[in-house]
Simulated scan of single mutants.
Amino acid sequence: MKIAVAGGTGWIGRLVVDAVVAAGDTPVVLSRSTGVDLTTGAGLPEALHDVTAVIDVSNVVTLRKRRAIAFFHASTTNLLTAGERAGVVHHVALSIVGSDRVDLGYYLGKRRQEELVLSGKVPASVLRTTQFHEFAAQMLARGGPVVLVPRQLNQPIAAREVAEALVGLARRSTPTGLAPELAGPEMHTMPDLVRGLLRARGERRLVMPVRLPGPVGEAMAGGGLLPAEPGPRGKITFAEWLGGDARTPAPAAHGRDRNAGSHNTPGSDRP
């Protein structure tokens, strides 16, 4: 079957496209580079012809509430409207563990996306996942001798495992609604992850933990981004990722096509 990937030219999007191919299905990439603008809906009707399922990993790089909500409202509305008209039978959206509890501006945009998807006319599934192992690499990709890293507790997961989970959901005949939260196998602090990656690369840079002000910073440092209930867990530990996928550089958190997917980092790929 054909599975459309919104944001399929982005970092996580490319992994989802690979997972679609590995599953024996045909990917259809939805991004500006393929003639589709999610924020206006341009190109969507043609792109979704004969598509059975849509996986949305599109993203906007911002921490601002207004911009995040505007992007996710527009892109999700356009995807759902075009999907309904095209006969799409399953819409899968990638979201973030803790986005319903931490009031960061970007997360408020993800909440709006979830609301639209779960109340829409196209049968849907929403998968919340924790931070990716790759977020540590995104922190380093920003450059400079000092790396500012948010103080937060995480249970990170390999992006490759997230991509496979999204495709697995999309291939199901029965959507799940809000799926059980997907997290990694171990708990870490974000500064420790960044330091571990620096050691693995043989680099010397100062890691400076920064706590965001107010309730948002308190929630992130206190476990607000950890899974709230038991659920599926990834198998690849951060140490194992360092010995394998970490050799493939993650893109910088800025300057990407806003239709491109990333994830879990506020203002980058996902929290």
Score class of each variant (00 low, 15 high):
1 M>N: 10
3 I>P: 01
4 A>H: 04
4 A>R: 00
5 V>R: 00
6 A>Y: 02
8 G>S: 10
8 G>T: 05
9 T>R: 15
10 G>Y: 02
10 G>P: 03
13 G>C: 12
14 R>A: 13
17 V>I: 00
20 V>Q: 06
20 V>K: 03
21 V>L: 14
24 G>F: 13
28 V>R: 04
28 V>H: 07
28 V>L: 09
30 L>D: 04
32 R>M: 03
32 R>A: 06
35 G>Y: 12
40 T>N: 05
40 T>G: 04
48 L>F: 12
52 T>K: 12
52 T>V: 12
57 V>H: 02
57 V>C: 08
62 T>K: 12
63 L>W: 15
70 A>P: 00
72 F>G: 02
79 L>N: 05
80 L>R: 01
82 A>Y: 01
84 E>C: 00
93 A>S: 14
96 I>G: 11
98 G>W: 09
99 S>Y: 09
99 S>Q: 12
100 D>T: 10
102 V>K: 11
104 L>K: 03
109 G>V: 01
115 E>F: 07
115 E>V: 13
117 V>N: 00
118 L>K: 05
124 A>Y: 01
125 S>V: 08
126 V>D: 01
126 V>T: 04
129 T>Y: 10
135 F>L: 10
136 A>L: 08
138 Q>M: 15
144 G>M: 12
146 V>F: 06
148 L>Q: 07
150 P>G: 03
150 P>H: 05
151 R>L: 08
154 N>K: 04
154 N>G: 01
155 Q>M: 13
159 A>L: 07
161 E>L: 08
164 E>K: 08
166 L>Q: 04
167 V>N: 06
167 V>M: 07
168 G>S: 11
171 R>S: 02
171 R>A: 06
172 R>N: 07
173 S>C: 02
173 S>F: 11
173 S>E: 14
174 T>G: 03
179 A>Y: 00
181 E>P: 04
186 E>R: 09
187 M>S: 10
193 L>E: 10
194 V>I: 11
195 R>Q: 14
196 G>L: 09
197 L>E: 11
197 L>V: 08
200 A>R: 15
215 P>A: 13
217 G>S: 10
219 A>P: 03
219 A>N: 10
220 M>D: 00
225 L>P: 02
225 L>K: 03
228 A>L: 11
230 P>L: 04
237 T>E: 06
240 E>H: 03
240 E>V: 00
242 L>H: 12
247 R>D: 14
249 P>N: 11
250 A>L: 05
252 A>W: 00
253 A>W: 01
255 G>A: 01
258 R>F: 03
262 S>V: 10
264 N>Y: 12
264 N>C: 10
266 P>Q: 08
267 G>A: 13
269 D>L: 15
270 R>S: 13
270 R>Q: 11
271 P>K: 03
